[in-house]
Design a protein around this nucleic acid. Structure first.
Lengths: 250, 250
DNA sequence: ACAGTCTTATTGTATAGACATAAAATGGCC
DNA sequence: GGCCATTTTATGTCTATACAATAAGACTGT
């Protein structure tokens, strides 16, 4: 990336990016190309200030950011060092189903196959950690891409956490999007498994029971209170999750 | 090297030492509890400076960090706003196999079942995008946890990118760790699928062909040059990937 | 040689001020 | 009213400085 940095003293720096972004890019490039291999000590802050002719705050911001991204490690008195490549952090984009179907150029449609109010029993606690007796809404939805069945959704909603879900019919909006619009920031735990198709999945997809399916389970918490647990089952031969890991991630 | 484990949740950092960490914790808590719902305008920087009695640089650092974490969105002149949650982003920490096995308190062992030099053909290009004729090293490894087979690894190494791999015997160190020690920071693409066990997996795990297995494929690039492609197959009934997404992330 | 202490270099954090930039709000003009 | 220039304002970036915390290395006394 080229930056139009003309001029020495005062920095009315051009639109090609801020100074610390340029510094960040250069250091990052040196690390990523291996010019500065893992363990290499990168220049001290005061060296970088003279090299780039800027103040220490500026290079400090850059190095702090690199440390946050995990590319370098900073040790007082010793300096800053290129880290060994980490056991990889992958960022997995789990889209919502409508978006994913429409990205393939297919028409999205869903049906609510089962919608039932009941109270939590002991059998529910592995999926949704609520006390027995808590009111729940149990849903089974079928998602279609064009005319093909795409995904089987089996969901439990904790009505103690989201009471307004009791009256939601999910006619226009699938439960996933309905919830995301109403529940604020939450923590989610995903589990990705392969398992053989059960009766429901086999019937929906028209495949023999036991055929490999990809199952994504998501449990959602809001300040430690369970909100919803959902199991999404996909045909194993028609679906895969893709994750791209780039060191910089910025 | 695969199998993911949840990244440790960020501990409540409210009482952490530095001032900006305290401010960060307080704002984060207001967002996460929903006290400041999505779309809410958080106080201007100058309001925060008076509230906390600090300089603008300090609150600016906090807000910049929150924006980087995706919790807020900053708009010039308008202010900073709580973003709608996008809990579609999950962070998978993918450890190497030895670490994963030993974390379960089991002894790790691996064998190299196949080690063969050959040249890339057309059939290889979906896995490793190299020109036909490029020298490759094809490996099949078996990883064990205690006495149980744990993972089937089928790997291609691009010898044009890592020529020193041609002579590596992988007697002490599995190819994954060997490579991570020699190849600098790289980009990796992961694909996670479910598919029925093939002959090799069925034989290793002692399961019928067609049994659901979890397959993780990783392709690794170093500045756009493919380095290695690996397919890791796990028993579907014995493995799952876990990803924990917390909004704050850092 | 060894243990404890001191020095010093480096990072961590914070301040006050400055100017740049972009977008909303305003006001004038037709 | 509708369009354009101007003002206002919040964020974006950078500087120069200051002091604190920490850990490596040197120094000292036994």
């Amino acid at each position: 990336m080229v930056t139009a940095r003309a001029r020495a003293a005062t920095p009315p720096r051009a639109a090609a990016g801020s100074l610390h972004q340029r510094i960040l890019g250069e250091i990052e490039a040196r690390i990523l190309t291996g010019e500065w291999p893992p363990g290499h000590r990168i220049p001290f802050e005061h060296e970088l200030t003279t090299r780039y002719g800027c103040s220490r705050m500026t290079v400090n911001k850059v190095l702090t950011q690199l440390a946050g991204a995990g590319l370098i490690e900073r040790r007082r008195k010793a300096g800053s060092f290129v880290r060994r490549p980490q056991f990889q952090l992958a960022i997995l984009t789990i889209q919502d189903i409508r978006t994913e179907v429409e990205a393939r150029g297919l028409a999205y449609r869903f049906t609510v196959a089962v919608r039932r109010h009941r109270r939590a029993g002991k059998a529910d606690s592995p999926r949704l950690a609520v006390p027995a007796g808590t009111p729940l809404l149990a849903l089974t939805c079928h998602h279609f891409a064009g005319s093909q069945p795409f995904c089987l959704e089996e969901r439990l909603i904790n009505l103690a956490a989201v009471p307004e879900a009791a009256d939601a019919l999910f006619a226009d909006e699938p439960p996933g999007t309905w919830l995301v619009d109403r529940v604020p920031w939450s923590t989610a735990e995903h589990r990705i498994r392969a398992c053989g198709a059960g009766p429901a999945a086999a019937a929906l997809f028209g495949i023999p029971e036991g055929t490999a399916c990809l199952v994504v389970e998501r449990r959602t918490f809001e300040t430690d209170q369970p909100v919803t647990a959902v199991r999404l089952t996909y045909r194993g031969d028609a679906h895969e999750l893709v994750a791209l890991f780039t060191p910089s991630q910025s």
